[in-house]
Computed example of a mutant assay.
Amino acid sequence: MAEAFSSLVETFRNVGVARAYGAPVQIGGEELIPVALVSFGFGGGGDSGPEGANGAAEGGGGGGFVLPLGAYLTDGQGRLVFRANTLTLLAGLVPVVCAVGMAVRGVIKTVNASRR
């Protein structure tokens, strides 16, 4: 199990800030620096069973995702600005809108219940 864990740690060693900010890219004479949300996780475990048991169980796994947030680029005045990825922004707002809607619904139910 220790070997598997060491292998996972080595595999994910290079994931982090270096992956969140991509290498600069030249497009149409402008330099863009892509920005992403990078997340990963892994775990493992084992069970040797009762004393004298013939079998032992071990397992592990991991996963991750990369969400493109946008890019840094220079504007016409030479300033560095961030341009968000519109689709990612809209997809990220869905849980926020749902949470706000549920909170408002709860407040309305509470107000209606207190009036009775």
Score class of each variant (00 low, 15 high):
5 F>W: 12
5 F>R: 10
5 F>V: 09
5 F>E: 10
6 S>T: 13
6 S>P: 08
6 S>D: 14
7 S>W: 00
7 S>K: 00
8 L>T: 01
9 V>P: 06
9 V>I: 09
9 V>E: 11
9 V>M: 11
10 E>C: 02
10 E>L: 04
11 T>W: 07
12 F>N: 09
12 F>R: 05
13 R>D: 08
13 R>Y: 06
14 N>E: 14
14 N>Y: 09
15 V>G: 11
15 V>R: 15
15 V>D: 13
16 G>D: 15
16 G>S: 11
16 G>E: 12
17 V>K: 09
17 V>P: 03
18 A>M: 06
19 R>Q: 15
20 A>Q: 14
20 A>M: 13
21 Y>H: 05
21 Y>W: 08
21 Y>S: 06
22 G>C: 03
24 P>T: 01
25 V>T: 05
25 V>Y: 02
26 Q>A: 07
26 Q>E: 10
26 Q>C: 01
26 Q>N: 05
27 I>F: 14
27 I>R: 15
27 I>L: 15
28 G>L: 05
28 G>D: 13
29 G>I: 00
29 G>Y: 00
29 G>R: 01
30 E>N: 09
30 E>Q: 13
31 E>G: 08
31 E>P: 04
31 E>K: 13
32 L>D: 07
33 I>F: 06
33 I>L: 13
34 P>F: 05
35 V>E: 12
35 V>K: 12
35 V>A: 15
36 A>M: 01
37 L>F: 13
37 L>M: 15
38 V>I: 13
38 V>K: 10
38 V>N: 09
39 S>Q: 13
40 F>I: 01
40 F>K: 01
40 F>A: 03
40 F>R: 03
41 G>Y: 12
42 F>D: 00
43 G>S: 12
43 G>R: 07
43 G>Q: 08
43 G>L: 07
44 G>L: 00
44 G>S: 04
45 G>C: 04
45 G>H: 05
46 G>I: 10
46 G>F: 14
47 D>S: 14
50 P>M: 03
50 P>E: 03
51 E>N: 04
51 E>P: 02
51 E>A: 07
52 G>W: 04
52 G>F: 02
53 A>E: 10
53 A>P: 08
54 N>F: 10
54 N>E: 11
54 N>P: 03
54 N>I: 08
55 G>F: 05
56 A>D: 14
56 A>C: 15
56 A>F: 14
56 A>E: 15
56 A>H: 15
57 A>Y: 11
58 E>F: 11
59 G>C: 04
60 G>C: 11
61 G>P: 00
62 G>M: 02
62 G>N: 04
63 G>S: 12
64 G>N: 12
64 G>K: 12
64 G>D: 12
64 G>E: 13
64 G>I: 11
64 G>C: 11
65 F>H: 04
66 V>I: 06
67 L>T: 14
67 L>V: 12
67 L>N: 11
67 L>S: 12
67 L>R: 13
68 P>G: 08
68 P>H: 09
69 L>D: 01
69 L>Q: 01
70 G>A: 02
71 A>P: 02
71 A>K: 01
72 Y>L: 11
72 Y>G: 02
72 Y>H: 08
